[in-house]
Structure formats: structure tokens, C-alpha cells
Design a binder for these strands. Sequence first.
DNA 1: AGCTTGACTGTGG
DNA 2: ACCACAGCCAAGC
Length: 109
Amino acid sequence: MGVFKESVIKYVSAIPKGNVASYGQIALYAGYPRGARQVGWILNKLPENTNVPWWRVINNKGYISIKAHSTYDAEIQKVLLEKEGVIIDKAYNIDINKYRYNPEIIIKS
DNA sequence: AGCTTGACTGTGG
DNA sequence: ACCACAGCCAAGC
């Protein structure tokens, strides 16, 4: 297992219940500032029975980006987040600034 | 070795 | 606010 994957899993696992983080945010924490797409790739490869909370990772625009998938889809991710108290609308939009994990690290303009 | 494919992102129109 | 686009980079062919 590569260092990158190990690191991504470590930081995704650190997101508290009821909070969310973006792919780019996880990539940044893991030491790969431009590895957002790779974070998505790694989460995609996680086994179905993983204990890694992949559903707490959404895109930086504030919505669930997963679409049709063999096993998981946006609806499943939505339900998992709602179980933790995160409010999501029908278009899968989330107030990411409200639920963001470690918001102080994100540089805003 | 080269090309395509994404669970992405920031910028610019 | 919405959309298009270019940059991104590991994995799979």
C-alpha cells in the first residue's frame, strides 16, 4: 500500500461524525495539494464493508458528486449523511461551510 | 511508452 | 449563479 493511500484513509477516518470534508481538503491534509481526483479514486476502490467513512467526503462545491455506481450511489451517501444529522436537499446540495471539518485550514477569498 | 478515464478544482466569461 | 475549460495525476489498457 502506498503512502498516499494510507494517508488519505487516515485523514478521511479522522472526519468526525456529522461533519464533511472535500476531496481537495483531504488531499491537502495528506500532503498532496493537487490530488483531489486521486482521493476520489482511492475511495472508489474501498471495499464495500470498509469502516472508512467515505460518505463524509463531498466535493468543494458542496454537493454529492458520486453518480451512478455499481454499488453506491448519491442516494446511499445522502442517507448515510442524514443519519448523522447533515441536512441535504433533493439536488444533493449541502451547506459545506456549516458542516466542514477543520474549516480554519481552508483559505477563503 | 502513450492515451484515456475520472466520487476534483479554481478561474473566467 | 451557472457553465465551460484547462490543469491535475494515478490507474488501467
